[in-house]
Amino acid sequence: MLKFVRKRAVASLISLIGLIVMVFFLSRLTGDPAALFLPVEASAEMKEQFRELHGLNDPLLVQFARYVGDVLTGDFGESLRKARPALDVVLEAFVWTLWLAVITMALVAGAAIVVGSLAAFRAGGFFDRLSSVISLIGASVPDFWVAIVAIVIFSVNLAWLPTSGTGSLLHWILPISVLFIRPFGIIVQVVRGSMIGALSSAYVKTARAKGVKSGPIIFVHALRNAMLPVITVIGDQAASLLNGAVIVETIFGFPGVGKLMIDSILQRDFNVVLAAILVTALAIFLMNLLIDLAYALLDPRIRH
């Protein structure tokens, strides 16, 4: 078990190093930082001064080593627009996104597992067909459209909920609901498919021969076996939320990392963009490690 986790952690670490290398060199590929950071009308001397100040005249490998050293010490430089360390700005926004993602995914996973399992139990029945239609719609509708329609109905017409921003629990309802829809639709389908397989398995037959009731057969015997593919997809969906649900965060004026990234790109605040990429990447690597752990906990055959 420990060996398995260590192996996965090492693999994640290697990918993370790869990412750091890529982020650095790709950011250099986008052109001369001096030209990007400084206003268009800046003079040649100003640019030269800027390069000298930031060590951009040094050989590329020296710059890379300095960059790696900075990253390891958590120093991503200053945010150009906010005059604060870039990392602080990112972490502040990331906490909002993390909460949004965790709450949404917890609700999605709980609901999708129950609905998908019950649909699979009587596959082809009324509940199955109903849930199929709903989940297919959920997986297909574009979330920005749902977000706008939801604002029109619940905030503008009914005036039940705030249109955007933060400040109270009510502010969370619309972003969570909108972000809920698509992963719910996808995960219901995955749970259903995986559960149909598990419910027709030989060990479920044994449980029926033992006289086990339907509830435990579905949620104890079949579900745990059916969870592996489900967890993979949950991780995948959670990753896209952690990346920052850019559009939904922007529409609802939600101060998460997605909105921060878009704003920073528009404002050419590159230190913040680089910090945001690494922070979200690190979060996704950690989450993948959690998923591997969950695999091992759920299936003893992986543990051994």
């Binding site: 398995s201 060990y203 044994t206 021969a209 033992k210 006289g211 759920l298 299936d299 003893p300």
Partner: peptide
């Protein structure tokens, strides 16, 4: 009817590996 299964009639199968739940 369910009470009969296991209590009065029990069953064993051909392939015990697939008939035992792998995760318990």
């Amino acid at each position: 009817r369910r009470e009969v299964n296991g209590r009065r009639i029990a069953m064993i199968f051909q392939d015990p590996l697939s008939h035992l739940n792998p995760v318990y």
